[in-house]
Simulated assay, not measured.
Amino acid sequence: MIIGVPKEIKNHEYRVGLTPTSARELVNCGHRVLIETQAGSAIGFDDQQYIYAGAEILATADDVFAAAEMVVKVKEPLAVERKRLRAEQTLFTYLHLAPDAAQTNDLIESGATCIAYETVTDNSGRLPLLAPMSEVAGRMSIQAGAACLEKSKQGRGVLLGGVPGVEPAKVVIIGGGVVGASAAAMAVGLGADVTVLDRSLDVLRRLDAQYGNSIKTVYSTVHSLEKHIVEADLVVGGVLIPGAEAPKLITRELVTKMKAGSAIVDVAIDQGGCAETAKATTHADPIYIVDDVVHYCVANMPGAVARTSTIALNNATLPFVLALANKGTREALVDDKHLLNGLNVCKGVVTCESVAVAQGLNYVPAADMVGEI
């Protein structure tokens, strides 16, 4: 198979779909790997490393898309990239389609087979290709939130861990999944006063067993959310409904009740955000203020630590890329129900029910479309 890797073009996005190590694995299996020049140079993966791995360097993204049978990316394709897709191609990347009707429509029109990292599952019902970036984003949320609390960012001027004689900041984490657990680890390590809210008692028990009295675990209700959010210095939104828009748990009214200079870091922004006041921002302009509350809603948070993120992502995605390349897209999807769960758009139809429901589109089960590939 011919696998193409274009350079990412989202604002301040330096990750790359394949590392030189991953490219070498594919070449070793007899595949051609085409890398757009300088695709990984910003994070220390220069063209020469890809050439040493057996990949070919192409001059432009147009060249990569034109030649590739499978395109491997990190972030969702932007409009200019979507125009390059063809019906016979497979696209393997993060998509986050539920809140993005324009992208969904373009992918439908392309006729391409589009597999989303974030809805691939495993035997335990987890999301193994989303988990590495959720771990990164969860840890980064505390770093970003700590900065947002500084006066230079219009924050409260509070040090997350406090100092002797001064109480620490109160950090409230909504959702105890991968993002929430990773955020809790960082916040506890910095000495913050940490509360995690979730509706799964198993999740709360696991966090309680891990951290004991170092955190507070609270069952999430409308009342408990309001109580803890209005008391918080920093709120981290880490809720997820696979493939669907994030629920708006932090209402506009609730934001008006928060402390002046407190902060919200909405890690769920890729799926529309869990705050009604959330709107996607970039690393170039990451924060904005609503009702004296600092909002950090960068849609590609892990891109700020792009080398770590790229390696972590490739560790998870490489087995699936190899399966798609070695077997071909159709056979790989037939053989692996978990990879099939990643199929979001195929041959002009939506094959992810959550996306179809969110956008009022017709839905065809993924299994019914595999034979069309």
Rank of each mutant, 00 (worst) to 15 (best):
G155K: 01
D266T: 06
K248M: 11
T277W: 07
R199M: 12
G191F: 00
R252K: 13
I174L: 15
I229H: 04
A268H: 01
Q154C: 13
L240N: 09
I215F: 02
K259V: 01
S224F: 13
V171Q: 09
V179S: 14
T256H: 09
T281P: 10
V235W: 11
G272M: 04
R252H: 05
V235M: 10
A263S: 09
A183S: 11
V166F: 10
G180V: 01
P242H: 07
G237P: 04
D202M: 14
T221Y: 03
T256F: 02
E226C: 14
K259C: 04
M186K: 15
A169S: 09
K259M: 00
V230Q: 10
T282I: 13
G175D: 09
G180H: 02
A268I: 00
G261H: 05
A284Y: 10
A232W: 14
V239H: 15
L254N: 05
T282E: 13
R156M: 15
D285A: 13
T256K: 09
V196D: 02
G261K: 02
T256E: 03
Q271D: 01
A284G: 10
S220D: 07
A232T: 08
V236T: 08
Q210M: 15
G177A: 06
V188L: 12
E167I: 08
S220G: 01
L160M: 07
T282D: 12
K279I: 02
K257R: 10
V222K: 13
V230L: 03
A209H: 13
Q271T: 04
P286D: 06
I269H: 04
A184P: 06
G238S: 12
G162L: 09
E245H: 11
H223T: 15
P168I: 06
V230T: 14
I287E: 06
K257Q: 13
G175Y: 07
G238R: 11
G176K: 09
S214C: 12
I264A: 03
V218L: 05
V196P: 07
L197I: 00
D193E: 15
V194L: 06
A169G: 11
A183D: 00
A278L: 11
G243A: 12
D266N: 03
I173Q: 05
P168V: 09
L201R: 14
K216A: 09
I241S: 13
V158F: 00
S224M: 10
H228Q: 15
G155I: 01
T251R: 03
L225W: 06
L240G: 05
G180R: 00
V230D: 01
A244I: 00
Q271M: 01
V235N: 04
V179W: 12
A268D: 03
I287Q: 05
L225N: 12
R252E: 06
G175L: 14
L204M: 10
G273Y: 11
R206T: 14
L204F: 08
G177P: 03
I264G: 00
L204E: 10
G162C: 07
E231V: 06
M186V: 14
D270W: 08
V171T: 13
T281S: 07
G237K: 02
